[in-house]
Amino acid sequence: MRTWQRPHYLVPDKRWRIALWIVFALYLVIGISSVEVNWQRAYEGLERGMRFMEGFVNPNFSRRAADIYSGILESLTMTVTSTVVGILLSIPFGMGAARNISPKPIYLFCRSFIAVSRSMQEVIVAIFLVALFGFGAFAGFLTLTYATIGFLGKLLAEEIEEIDNKQLEAISSTGASWLQRVHIAIWPQVMPRMIGLSFYRFDINFRESAVIGIVGAGGIGATLNTSIDRYEYDSAGAILILIILIVLACEYFSGWIRKWVS
């Protein structure tokens, strides 16, 4: 009788495998034990959890109808303006951050601007902007614009760095100016993907606009925060359902546009 054991390709050495599993198990034990659970409190929460489920199934749109309406509207306006302005600004930043077309000092500046924008949570940015610009949608608009520049700028820069260099050379060799080069050799190559990404970012901005309201930067988040704090789960359910529906609609619409564009 011959024996056979399944070969492992990822970690071929059995001792290493066992060691890794032990490390993983140890982490789980330590990690989970660091989660201090107040069982008494959690048990009391069960009833509230049930109420939330109920609220989600039977949402109440009417109690806070005015707040919900203005909140959603504010979220949407913030999303539209910040996405448009963000896209417009991400173009210079993205081109500045592309190594193959921009001079070194500009490259370094744009790269670090983008890097900081990407590693800062929107909510943290919002806290600062609210401190500077006061409560309200304008701080939210600035937050989302800043995040959009980081997101799209990085992708645009990568896209430009990956373009076909031969075309760029061919255009340069005709004596084209920098603007002409960008217009003729680069723009057509990166345009289709950028349109898709812009719609994706619209989607993200709407979702984020629902969050930054919690720290005072306008949008539906403030209304959501109040209704959850007051345990009005049916109103909260209504808001969450609206958010889900709008996100779904955005996704559907952007899929449709992308099909139409390409």
């Binding site: 929460g45 939330f52 919690i214 988040g221 345990y231 969450l240 779904l248």
Partner: peptide
């Protein structure tokens, strides 16, 4: 569609 901060907000009350 629902950000983790909103989930957290909900779960903290629960």
């Amino acid at each position: 569609s629902i950000n983790s901060l909103i989930w957290a907000l909900l779960l903290v009350t629960i």
